[in-house]
Design a protein around this nucleic acid. Structure first.
Length: 284
DNA sequence: AGACAAGCCTGTACGC
DNA sequence: TGCGTACAGGCTTGTC
């Protein structure tokens, strides 16, 4: 329990940090030392595509970071379970490089953008194959991003009706709504007062409406708190700071504790093969 | 010491 | 038969 992994709010926080600090900066040197960090192309190919290029807009789709380059290509970063991007300012390189640093981009102001990833599930790639929406075609399987694309109840109702599965499985499936992971799926179900094991096809219009509001409200609140950093410290922002939304979790990691709404004991169980936390009294 | 947690992909099994 | 869903395994390692 208590395994904070970067989801949409955490990736969005890093996206904003990158936007503020690396847009306009040029990559003067790129190196990849992690054996699994770059797997869709040769690491030398990725480095060559980055060196000499400046960052333009920084975008995000679901849990993927999209760092635009001034030649139209995009550096795609997925942090997966344990990845972090850290920007180390010029003059602060003393003390060497943290363990599990798999890629380093030296920028033209002598700062360094580092990719750190103990579990090596994360990945980087550069692509020039960009769809009309500005998202790399390699990510075309992703569904709507609730923050950048918006999410209206009619669209959500259609998506829910097209699936026959547990609500939690639907929320975790990046092909429908992109960006939600295990923590926020539980928090969204609580906010919507819906059980994570409710069948998607059984949701009434008022419940779909509550779900839509919950998705947007929970994700926006988590972004406002700069994401969740739990005990494992796995998530840090670009500067190494923690998020604070973990202090606002209503159910995730709270099995056995009283529901904040009705004081019923929060249940810990498994739904769709994943740990799930919910209040058996005020979620139905 | 070993089970577990995580995201995402792949392969296979199963039900309608 | 085919399609969509379910489930298990793989990848990895810090934590309990």
């Amino acid at each position: 329990m208590c395994h904070a992994v970067p989801e949409l709010p955490e990736v969005e926080t890093v996206r904003g940090d990158l936007e503020a600090r690396v847009v306009g900066r040029c990559v003067v040197r790129a190196s990849v030392t992690g054996a699994r960090t770059v797997r869709r192309q040769r690491p030398t190919e990725l480095c060559a595509a980055l060196e000499g290029r400046a960052f333009s807009a920084i975008r995000r789709k679901g849990k993927y970071l999209l760092a635009g380059l001034d030649d139209g290509a995009v550096l795609v970063v997925h942090l997966r379970m344990s990845g972090q991007l850290r920007l180390v300012p010029a003059g602060e390189h003393a003390g060497g490089t943290a363990p599990h640093t798999h890629a380093v981009l030296g920028l033209d102001d002598a700062s360094e953008l580092r990719f750190v990833d103990p579990r090596t599930f994360g990945e980087l790639f550069v692509t020039s194959e960009i769809g009309p929406d500005g998202v790399p075609t390699a990510l075309s399987g992703l569904g709507v991003d609730p923050i950048t694309d918006g999410l209206d109840a009619a669209r959500l109702a259609t998506l829910l009706r097209s699936r026959h599965t547990a609500l939690k499985a639907f929320l975790l499936d990046q092909r429908g709504v992109a960006g939600i992971g295990n923590i926020y799926a539980d928090e969204i179900c609580f906010a919507a007062r819906l059980r994570p094991d409710r069948r998607t096809e059984s949701l009434r219009p008022d419940e779909v409406s509550r779900l839509r509001d919950a998705v947007l409200d929970v994700l926006a609140a988590a972004v406002a708190h700069r994401g969740s950093t739990l005990r494992d410290e796995r998530y840090r922002d670009l500067g190494g700071a923690r998020g604070s939304y973990q202090d606002h979790h209503a159910v995730y990691g709270r099995a056995g504790e009283p529901c904040l709404r009705c004081a019923t004991v929060v249940v810990g169980s498994r739904v769709a093969g994943r740990s799930a936390h919910f209040c058996p009294s005020c979620q139905s």
